[in-house]
């Protein structure tokens, strides 16, 4: 009897978790839908301003401030890749292919994905904390009371800025990985690797390697900003829930980024992109 009761408890727990997951995703989708609607309205120009000023401020906060850290991290990724690939390639006399591999891995995947992970901590967490604090200070209620839609006024500039900056930072990141690989070759790996490094990378890379990476970066930007705004606006007053919102933003963003990257890779593989 107790075994059956326990079974039922388990089923209920799984069900409850499933329902809350569906509700959460539903809430996020709804927020994304509203955001897109306001962006379209803004572009159509029907007395809805997107707020160029707010957008610029958000771009600075999301992007400009994280350039340094993104570049630094990506240089290290390039160094790591170059050093780790040398032992398996050396017996086959293929160490010169390191340039080709770093090019593909960096531009297609590691550039966008590492940039997005860094930004989920840098931008996502701070967006969630900021919006959460605004909920606590009744600022969201005040916006609504002034007939100003919080999605239009707060979410739209943050989403646009995050998407724009994730894409731009990814361009920087791609090159930094390549630079990191080159630095490692010059310092440690010898002329077999660094001689003709850029030339081999150039012949290996196709425009689509670069563009698929940027498309992914854009989607990562949407994920990070929508998750951050959703978490921030869900905050209910107390300080503890602000902390929870920032943590969950980073956790969900990273999971979302990896899952999306996997889905994209499958799609690109099937479409031979």
């Amino acid at each position: 009897m107790s075994g059956r009761a326990r079974q039922r408890g388990l089923v209920e727990a799984v069900g409850a978790a499933l329902i809350s997951a569906v509700c959460y995703l539903g809430g996020m989708t709804l927020l994304l839908g509203q955001t897109l609607r306001w962006i379209v309205r803004g572009l159509a120009g029907r007395k809805t301003r997107l707020g160029g000023e707010a957008l610029a401020a958000q771009c600075v906060r999301v992007g400009v401030r994280s350039v340094g850290i993104v570049a630094l991290v990506q240089i290290f990724i390039g160094v790591i890749l170059a050093l780790q690939m040398t032992p398996p390639l050396k017996p086959w006399g293929q160490v010169d292919k390191i340039a080709n591999i770093i090019g593909v891995a960096g531009f297609r995947m590691l550039g966008p994905i590492i940039t997005a992970v860094v930004l989920s901590g840098f931008a996502g967490a701070s967006i969630a904390a900021e919006l959460g604090a605004m909920v606590g200070a009744e600022e969201i209620k005040a916006l609504e009371a002034m007939a100003l839609n919080p999605v239009r006024y707060l979410v739209v500039p943050r989403v646009l800025a995050t998407v724009l900056m994730t894409v731009l930072l990814t361009v920087v990141a791609d090159w930094m990985i390549a630079v990191g690989g080159y630095l490692a070759s010059v310092v440690a790996l010898g002329p077999d690797v660094y001689y003709g490094y850029w030339e081999r990378m150039r012949t290996q890379l196709r425009l689509r390697d670069f563009l698929t990476g940027l498309v992914m970066a854009g989607v990562f930007g949407v994920l990070i900003s929508i998750i951050a705004c959703h978490e921030g606006l869900r905050v209910r007053g107390d300080a503890e829930s602000v902390g929870r919102a920032t943590t969950m933003t980073v956790v969900y963003s990273i999971v979302g980024i990896i899952v999306a990257a996997c889905i994209f890779t499958v799609i690109f593989y099937v479409l031979k992109l």
Binding site: E138, E139, A142
Partner: peptide, 20 residues
């Protein structure tokens, strides 16, 4: 409702000024 909201003002407990 938004049109109606323009006809009343609210002073929130904390003032609710936009900090930025």
């Amino acid at each position: 409702l938004n049109a109606l909201r323009l006809q009343f003002g609210i002073l929130f407990q904390s003032g609710a000024l936009f900090s930025s």
